[in-house]
């Protein structure tokens, strides 16, 4: 152990020991810790009005247990219910910051729709975002259309924008649901790369449940992406904007 007499070697060895210990010992006890934190969560969600559809996942996508839950299954709930659930879960002992699988922004429910929804609808009336056959990869030719959509959405950045993917009725409904959601997520990714913040975009896959009005459910023209302005964040005046008493 002669090498440990050099101070820097010893310090680095200590650092490595810390990392190894944290990963092995901390990692080994983490599942039980996460389980214990997660135990009272379903009851709290149900009490806050989430029923049993809203679930909290206490692990990262790669499976590592975490104290920071990701909440799923709140697609149909109002913003105030989501906020109540979030507060109830975050108030439980041991729970870290929470996030929603489909977007985080907490906003007011009542609003007058902004013109940008019409702008985007007008863009998409004439042209469509195309995908490669039975894949969620956006066709290269649709890039410029997405540029225009991003530009049209930019004035509405205070609002929550829902991206819904639709398919026609070919294939199984399960696969259609998954594909429509993947396509909506691909559009969200493309918009985020063009500077629209991830937090204001919600995605949902509708499958073939909502065909275009006046079209047969099997019509390929039902394959589409729709944008809806869900709600707007309240405008909070900054101190500069607010006239003082004097």
């Amino acid at each position: 152990m002669e090498f440990l007499r050099k101070p820097y070697t010893a310090i680095v060895a200590g650092l490595i020991a810390c990392i190894v210990l944290a990963y092995t010992v901390g990692g080994a006890s983490a599942p039980q810790v996460a389980q214990r934190i997660a135990a009272p969560v379903p009851a709290a969600i149900a009490e806050a009005g989430g029923g049993d559809t809203v679930r909290a996942r206490f692990s990262l996508p790669n499976g590592w247990p975490s104290r920071h839950p990701v909440l799923t299954g709140a697609e149909g709930l109002s913003e105030s219910t989501r906020a109540r659930i979030a507060h109830a879960v975050a108030a439980l002992p041991g729970v870290g910051g929470i996030s929603w699988a489909d977007g985080d922004l907490m906003v007011e429910q009542h609003f007058s729709p902004l013109h940008c929804q019409d702008d985007v609808a007008a863009l998409l009336r004439a042209r469509t975002i195309r995908f490669e056959e039975s894949s969620a990869r956006i066709d290269a030719a649709s890039g410029s259309l997405i540029d225009e959509v991003a530009a049209a959405l930019r004035p509405c950045l205070g609002a929550v924008i829902r991206i819904s993917g639709h398919t026609d009725r070919s294939g199984s409904e399960e696969a259609n649901l998954a594909l429509s959601r993947e396509r909506a997520e691909a559009v969200r990714g493309a918009l985020v790369r063009r500077g629209i913040p991830n937090a204001v975009l919600r995605v949902e896959g509708m499958g073939s449940a909502h065909p275009v009005e006046g079209l047969e459910p099997g019509d390929p023209a039902n394959r589409r992406i729709e944008f809806t302005v869900v709600s707007t964040a309240p405008l909070v005046p900054t101190p500069v904007d607010t006239p003082g008493p004097r």
Binding site: C18, A22, Y23, A30, R67, H68
Partner: peptide, 30 residues
């Protein structure tokens, strides 16, 4: 952040405090 990384942060903090204290008490004299 996974739990083992939170453990790591705490351990590194404790390690840094320990190193600092050790240096302040014994390291300066020699």
């Amino acid at each position: 952040m996974p739990i083992w990384m939170e453990v790591l942060v705490l351990m590194l903090l404790a390690y840094a405090v320990g190193l600092g204290l050790g240096w302040a008490i014994w390291g300066r004299e020699s």
